[in-house]
Write a protein that binds this DNA or RNA. Structure first.
Length: 263
DNA sequence: ATGACGACTGGAAGTCGA
């Protein structure tokens, strides 16, 4: 089975690219983030014509997650139990969507950005991660043989070598000790970040800002990551960061990460 | 070429991303 995750940065603006990727990569399951549209605006039909089931959780122009699957799509959950709200009145944002596809529990995740260390979004980000970690730990405790993956845009660069210049990020989000600890906590809860195991090369990025010629200069960040349960991690035979998808006209600023799983 | 930010909404300029 082939499973991919991609922050698409608007599914409507990049429908053709998404369809082309699905066809050339032959993914069985595709988790999308930043779809940037309401559920009734999501272009389901072209994917359904290719044999995929589609489930979405969107809200107007911000956030939005989706899962496409041609190996079944069951037990959909919009948001994870205990997912923090933001704002007053509090809103559960469209950042987490779970479904079971081909026997694997898949969560498409768009972790809050954080914006600035003094911004309320930063505390929200840390709380969001802590609550998700609590759930993830419970899921695994309840079923040690669980096959599950937490995929998506974590908005954290776990290692110094996951950014091109640590000095550039001094005082900024994505690299703070608190964010990195929030990320490591999933490993302490028994999960394994499998893309690192299979693609260990330093300065291998999944995101490049549109500005400042970041992509031609290869000034990016590795922030699209996959935590797997032990049972699923054992099935991963390879991981591919699809850098080619950052090239050409109107790309997303993120590229897909593809996981191959043994049957 | 991989080349100097892009998508959204509203209908201009502001918000958001990281």
């Amino acid at each position: 089975m082939r499973l991919a995750t991609w922050n698409i940065n608007s599914i409507r603006a990049r429908l053709d690219r998404a369809l082309a990727f699905v066809e050339r990569s032959g993914v069985d399951v595709l988790a999308l983030q930043e779809t940037k549209c309401k559920d009734d605006q999501f272009p389901r039909e072209p994917f359904e014509q290719l044999g995929y089931e589609v489930v979405t959780s969107g809200f107007s122009q911000w956030n939005g997650v989706a899962i496409l699957s041609r190996v079944g799509l069951a037990d959909v959950e919009v948001g994870f139990p205990g997912q923090p709200t933001f704002g007053d009145p509090g809103v559960v944002e469209a950042r987490a969507l779970g479904a079971t596809c081909g026997g694997v529990r898949v969560w498409s995740l768009y972790v809050p950005n954080g914006r600035d260390l003094a911004d309320p979004h930063y505390a929200y980000k840390l709380d969001w991660l802590a609550r998700l970690r609590d759930q993830a730990g419970q899921w695994l405790a309840d079923d040690p043989g669980l096959q599950a993956a937490l995929v998506g845009d974590w908005n954290i660069a776990p290692l110094d070598t996951d950014v091109w210049d640590l000095e550039f990020f001094a005082g900024k989000t994505h690299v703070t000790p608190a964010e990195r600890e929030a990320f490591r906590a999933f490993a302490e809860a028994g999960w394994t970040e499998v893309s690192r195991e299979h693609v260990p090369a330093e300065h291998t990025y999944t995101y490049w800002d549109y500005q400042q010629l970041r992509f031609p200069k290869n000034q990016g960040m590795r922030i699209d990551l996959t935590y797997a349960t032990p049972a699923l991690a054992a099935r991963v035979t390879g991981v591919s960061i699809e850098r080619v998808e950052r090239k050409g006209k109107t790309p997303s600023d993120h590229v897909p990460v593809v996981l191959d799983l043994a049957d």
